[in-house]
């Protein structure tokens, strides 16, 4: 049975309607109001590019943007690399691989609020890390990891960087979907172990890795809870990122126009990342 293509669009209607209602209209409103002066208790009026110019002058925006980009790059590289490495190891189906696969996902299913509390305790002055360091050094160690200028980025970054269970699951599924004939052929040609992984498997699952990079890096454009609940962007602005600054600007300073300008900047950053990764991984080209 051949179905006319225009009939298929009918199926898209509910989804398109909801997408428009929940995403497109709010994005339009956010974009439009980013060109206005809009604070609580005062009238809204057009102010042109003033909010964007203020953002350029605002040292907190510069710091928040820098931190956000730093975490985006780390997620796109280190986080994905960890996930892919674990997937390659698990794809050997060594003893207990299913259990490890499940365990690697656990941090992803723990609520961010609980994870934040756990991390605060682990990196507390009297926490696990300092206890370990005390045992190793033989001297009492009471570093406030989250609240010292030189160390604050470490626990904040660790609270998401090393938990790449989602990437592992995605990549592992793709690896297990690769025909064994390809690796068998490579073996017959003399390829071994890592050569098969790097020269056969990884190129074949290129688009999956690209998807993983997009998921991992864009997650940093919306990371909020784990910073808000631990350092609140401090000490000073040492762990401030764009979503948290947007929140503070909108809901604490009640400057909605300026907050929405930051929202537009985040959206553009996200679109840029998706576009760049798509080009880098040639996502629209066949793998064969």
């Amino acid at each position: 049975m051949r179905v006319k293509k225009h009939i298929l669009f009918v199926f898209l209607l509910p989804c398109a309607f909801l997408f428009g209602l929940i995403y497109l209209i709010p994005i339009g409103v956010v974009t439009a109001t980013s060109f206005t002066s809009w604070k609580i208790g005062s009238d809204i009026h057009f102010c042109g590019l003033e909010n964007y110019l203020s953002a350029v002058r605002d040292p907190n925006v510069r710091v928040a943007l820098l931190h956000t980009l730093f975490w985006v790059v780390l997620q796109a590289t280190v986080h994905v690399a960890l996930g892919v490495t674990l997937a390659l190891i698990l794809s050997r189906r060594c003893r207990g691989w299913r259990a490890i696969r499940t365990i690697s996902m656990l941090p992803n299913i723990i609520p961010a609020s609980a994870l934040a509390i756990i991390f605060l305790r682990v990196f507390d002055a009297n926490g696990l890390i300092n206890s370990l360091l005390s045992v190793i050094t033989g001297k009492p160690v009471q570093i406030q990891w989250y609240f010292q200028v030189k160390t604050a980025m470490i626990p904040v970054t660790l609270s998401w960087l090393i938990y790449s269970g989602l990437i592992t699951i995605l990549v592992l599924a793709a690896i297990l979907g690769v025909s064994t004939e390809l690796s068998d052929s490579a073996k017959m040609d003399g390829a071994r172990g890592l050569q098969i992984d790097f020269l056969v498997i990884l190129p074949i699952i290129r688009t999956t890795i690209g998807t993983a990079v997009i998921i991992a890096s864009t997650s940093m454009l919306k990371e909020f809870e784990l910073i808000f609940l631990t350092t609140n962007g401090g000490p000073g602005n040492k762990t401030l990122n764009m979503p948290l600054y947007l929140y503070k600007t909108s809901l604490i300073e009640n400057n909605y126009g300026y907050g929405n300008a930051m929202g537009v900047m985040l959206i553009l950053l996200g679109v840029g990342i998706v576009f760049g990764v798509n080009r880098l991984f040639r996502m629209d080209e066949s793998v064969y």
Binding site: Q144, F147, N232, G234, P235, G236, K248, I252
Partner: peptide
Amino acid sequence: YANVVDEVSVQYPLLAQGEM
């Protein structure tokens, strides 16, 4: 102001450690 109260909280660690 609410944002000043928030600022107090994030600046205290710097003050406490002599960073400011």
